[in-house]
Design a protein around this nucleic acid. Structure first.
Length: 922
RNA sequence: GCCCGGAUGGUGGAACUGGUAGACACGCAGGACUUAAAAUCCUGUGGCCGUUGAGGCCGUGCGGGUUCAAGUCCCGCUCCGGGUACCA
């Protein structure tokens, strides 16, 4: 007697897998490797909802499938454990964030294990664990000890730079460095004091402290990276963010801008994602042009991508933050300029973004000279010019640029058209390319040619030079927070030095409170007697969340190594991630920083692959499906959805967990809130029907579905298959529990192939019939092809078709079922493990081999051709697959139905597509 | 504004490089079993007209086009989702 008791079976096998270490992975060069990775989660207090596991289920299916196919599969899981929520909780309650984090991680692991994932937990990483962040700090130290040589196109040890400086200074050097790096000779370098040398080297190091404009979030008490700010608000918490100048550790990611951009070509990522990274890097080819200030010994350099329009310049604009504003302002304009500049500075980033349409600016009183025609044009200040992009100076061409045009109209500045055909247009910026006019030496050229000509001319005359510009800036690496990796740096006379490698990890010190100090210092400044060697101040900021997540995929390869961050052997074997599944929200953060660090470690010879993630798939979001109820305006009375238009109603959300197929469980609803306990209901057909709204899944919308509830009700196998059955993995879709019955029914009926309704085992050893083998092998083929394409929903359909046919054939043959169990096991591992053992196997199904597809079994002798008349299906006729076309045509024309449609006429043409279709053209 | 996706029955979705549109499932309707319900099983299910195993017409967001043949390719739109934004 055997019963399909889901919860018992699933528990039993989860315990078995754990006890027998079925998912333990070792480095084994004798076998081909496959690395399947999920973006590791931040363990929040809320636990998982049903949307989170979508990607995990998909990757687990791939991992299990590849294993059956003979690959040595690395499929690890860990936790991105430093983060704001735990710290915020610590500030509120005084509890150390490590405690909350550990609790949350336990909960997550339990939830993940309930779903039957095949992780090797021995390789788990937690970014907040000192044994892990020791190596995050170590990587930071390598970055500090490196510079980027543009000649060889890679990062090198800082010692090689020192050697060059000793020999020749930095004259012949092509390196990524600060913009303000002066040119020095070897003699000057040698004459530097040690401190001066150290300060100078900071201009080249790949991580360095700098005074920079940062996104300061007062509510969180920290700075945020550009990708952590959305529309002027912090991504976590939604607090306002403002601009502030602070000393920050920076990462010289701009050194890698070109390689990060170019390598995208080689990656098997979605075009959308690559495009996001391209836009973020924002490479543009242009030209820097020099504008001399009239009457002053000052030259302003403007960056432009449209040097062809230089004759259309009617004014030049500075960013309000430009440092020369004071000297460039004439006395009579001083008052106006001061007022404008201070107003612009005090405007928060948010405000500035909010009214993009408002035109504002002020005249400096100065004029500058157009280097091409020596014309004097006015110099303005306006906040549409960003200090952080290009040079902070824009040559304005109102006839070709929308913003310049709006500005010129507002302040009544002249507009000069330089493109043929724009002279008479109300808005000449609508035509951006064409033949140049009013443009001196450029007249008559097409704009694209004129750009090259103008650039060459500028270079020849020494009035400018071609320049490649990037939108991406160096990444801010400091956070004024407690719950992050300490930076392994101490200060001597204000100059940062690394601590000794043997002193790693530099552990987080205890503090009395997790808040900033009264003087605004970060929380680490509270740590008592926290000094390096008892003497030197440590860095008080901590690393950002993306530090630990930028290399965790390497650590999994060798997670417990305490001598290296990863051994060469391990990284040579596992190298890049073959399949990475995660959300699109990390497009410009994690996925860019990880590529940067990976590339750096590759340059320095620590690892041997340049890109970390060969193939990447973004799983879609599972949206919430909220159920609405309609309350009468002044009464405690609810009307059913179909009747709501007849009343004046207020739309309210009901918890989806008390709604089934959009029918409200009225008793549960009454108990939900005391104020509803005596509510009345207007029903339709005896039922209360709820409305439906698709929106984000969130607790406040009462539309979250907890996977634990689903697992206890339907089982993990059902949940796994249902999430896959919902649709293509990369598409967003609302969660609707209604459809889950179909999958639950499938698994129960699959069980019924093995056990009759009395629970009696009915599998026999009979030889399979041709028809049964055909069904089996069709499924073997379809499922393996679709898994490779990550088309999991069609796999589930195929299983259902297969089951329907086997049920019809009353096939209870071991030869068929045993192979099918293996094919199904990546999707429903618990059920299949149970059945696998019933079939008499002692080992785990995980260690089975995927059946080999045999095309002979699925070959057909004949094909039933759809016969079309003028493209419309009219009849069907079977022919042997290798039937000669002439004979087929003859038969078709002789067919009664075809005759009827021909109506005595001769056909114009007959198209026969072998084993596809026959079309008769009349 | 710009850049990516997407639009197929009441619903989720199938349809490989153009070749039988609606697989599979949910829901719904009818039936069987049952004292009853649940569960299970069977049948039907794009729309319209007509029939009761005739058949026909229309149908993949909208309007054109290419083709023997278009959900699929081309041109022009509409709407929805995501990203991004004074980037010179």
């Amino acid at each position: 007697m055997a019963e399909y008791n889901i919860n018992d079976i699933e528990k039993k096998w989860q315990d078995y897998w754990k006890k027998n270490q079925v998912y333990k992975v070792t480095t084994d060069p004798s076998r081909p490797k496959f690395y399947v990775l999920d973006m590791f989660p931040y363990p929040s207090g809320a636990g998982l909802h049903v949307g989170h596991p979508l990607g995990y289920i998909a990757s687990d299916i791939v991992a299990r499938f590849k294993r059956l196919k003979g690959f040595n599969v690395l499929h690890p899981m860990g936790f991105d454990a430093f983060g704001l929520p735990a710290e915020q909780y610590a500030i509120d309650t005084g509890q150390h964030p490590a405690i909350t984090t550990a609790q949350n991680i336990e909960k997550y692991k339990e939830q993940l294990n309930n779903l039957g994932f095949s992780y090797d937990w021995d390789r788990e990483v937690q970014t907040c664990d000192p044994s892990y962040y020791k190596w995050t700090q170590w990587i930071f130290m390598q970055l500090f000890n490196s510079w980027y040589d543009k000649k060889t196109g890679k990062a090198l040890a800082i010692e090689s730079l020192i050697e060059i400086l000793n020999q020749q200074g930095n004259a012949g050097l092509s390196a990524a460095c600060d913009d303000d790096t002066p040119e020095i000779s070897a003699e000057e370098w040698k004459a530097f004091s040690d401190e001066e040398k150290a300060a100078f080297l900071l201009k080249y190091r790949l991580t360095y402290p700098a005074d920079s404009m940062v996104n300061w979030c007062p509510a969180l008490g920290t700075v945020l990276a550009n990708d952590e700010v959305k529309d002027g608000f912090s991504e976590r918490g939604g607090h306002p963010v403002e601009r502030k100048k602070m000393k920050q550790w920076m990462m010289r990611i701009t050194a890698y801008a070109d390689r990060l951009l170019e390598n995208l070509e080689k990656l098997n990522w979605s075009e959308a994602l690559k495009e996001m990274q391209r836009n973020w890097i924002g490479k543009s080819y242009g030209c820097e042009l020099d504008f001399k200030v009239v009457g002053k010994d000052i030259t302003l350099t403007a960056f432009t991508t449209r040097s062809d329009t230089i004759y259309g310049v009617t004014y030049v604009v500075l960013a309000p933050e430009h440092e020369l504003i004071e000297t460039l302002t004439t006395p009579d304009q001083k008052e106006a300029v001061d007022a404008y500049v201070s107003a612009a500075k005090n405007r928060s980033e948010r405000e500035r973004m909010a009214d993009v349409k408002t035109v504002s600016g002020v005249f400096t009183g100065s004029f500058v000279v157009n280097p091409f025609n020596n014309e004097e044009v006015p110099l303005w200040i306006a906040d549409y010019v960003l200090a952080g992009y290009g040079t902070g100076v824009v040559m304005a061409v109102p006839s070709s640029d929308d913003r310049d045009f709006r500005f010129a109209r507002h302040f009544d500045l002249p507009v000069r058209c330089v493109i043929e055909g724009t002279e008479e247009m109300a808005d000449p910026t609508e035509k951006k390319h064409g033949k140049m006019i009013n443009s001196g030496i450029l007249n008559g050229m097409e704009s694209t040619d004129a750009i090259t000509a103008a650039n060459n001319y500028a270079a020849e005359k020494g009035i400018g030079k071609p320049k490649v510009n990037y939108r991406m800036r160096d990444a801010v690496f400091s956070r004024q927070r407690y719950w992050g990796e300490p930076v392994p740096v101490h200060f001597k006379n204000g100059i940062p030095h690394l601590i000794d490698e043997k002193d790693l990890p530099l552990e987080l010190p205890p503090v009395d409170e997790y808040k900033p100090t009264e003087t605004g210092e970060p929380p680490l400044a509270r740590a008592k007697d926290w000094k390096y060697k008892g003497d030197f101040d440590y860095e008080h900021t901590t690393m950002p969340g993306w530090a630990g997540s930028s290399w965790y995929f390497l650590r999994y390869m060798d997670a417990t190594n305490d001598r290296e961050f990863v051994s060469s052997d391990a990284v040579k074997y596992w190298n890049e991630v073959d399949l990475y599944i995660g959300g699109t929200e990390h497009a410009t953060g994690h996925l860019l920083y990880s590529r940067f660090w990976n590339m750096f470690l590759y340059d320095r010879g620590f690892i041997f692959h340049e890109e970390p993630f060969r193939r990447l798939v973004n799983q879609g979001m599972i949206q919430g499906r909220s159920n609405m109820v309609y309350k009468l305006k002044d009464q405690n009375k609810f009307v059913s959805e179909g009747l709501k238009d007849d009343y004046e109603v207020i739309e309210l959300r009901a918890d989806v967990n008390m709604v089934d197929h959009d029918i409200l469980d009225i008793e549960a609803f009454k108990k939900w809130r005391p104020e509803y306990s005596d509510a009345e209901f207007v029903l339709e057909g005896g039922k209360y029907k709820c409305g439906v709204v698709v929106e984000k899944m969130s607790k406040s919308k009462y539309n979250t579905i907890n996977p634990d509830d689903m697992v206890s009700k339907y089982g993990a196998d059902t949940l796994r298959m249902y999430e896959m059955f919902l649709g293509p993995i990369e598409m967003s879709k609302p969660w609707n529990t209604a459809g889950i019955d179909g999958v639950a029914k499938f698994l129960r009926r699959f069980w019924m192939l093995f056990f009759d309704d009395k629970g009696k085992y009915r599998v026999n050893d009979e030889n399979p019939a041709a028809e049964e083998l055909k069904v089996l092998h069709k499924t073997i083929k379809k499922v393996q092809d679709d898994i490779e394409q990550l088309s999991f929903n069609t796999c589930v359909s195929e299983f259902m078709i297969c089951l329907n046919q086997l049920t019809q054939l009353k096939c209870y043959k071991k030869a068929i079922l045993q192979e099918l169990v293996v094919v199904l096991s990546p999707f429903a591992p618990h059920l299949c493990e149970e059945l696998w053992h019933h079939l008499g196997n002692a080992d785990s199904v995980v260690n089975a081999a995927y059946p080999v597809f045999n095309p002979q079994y699925v070959q057909e002798a004949s094909f039933e051709y759809p016969i079309m008349i003028n493209g419309k299906l009219r009849a069907k006729i079977s022919f042997a697959v290798d039937a000669p076309q002439d004979a087929m045509k003859e038969t078709v024309l002789g067919n009664e139905i075809v005759q009827k449609w021909l109506d005595g006429k001769a056909p114009k043409n007959i198209i026969v597509v072998p084993n596809k279709i026959i079309n008769v053209v009349v």
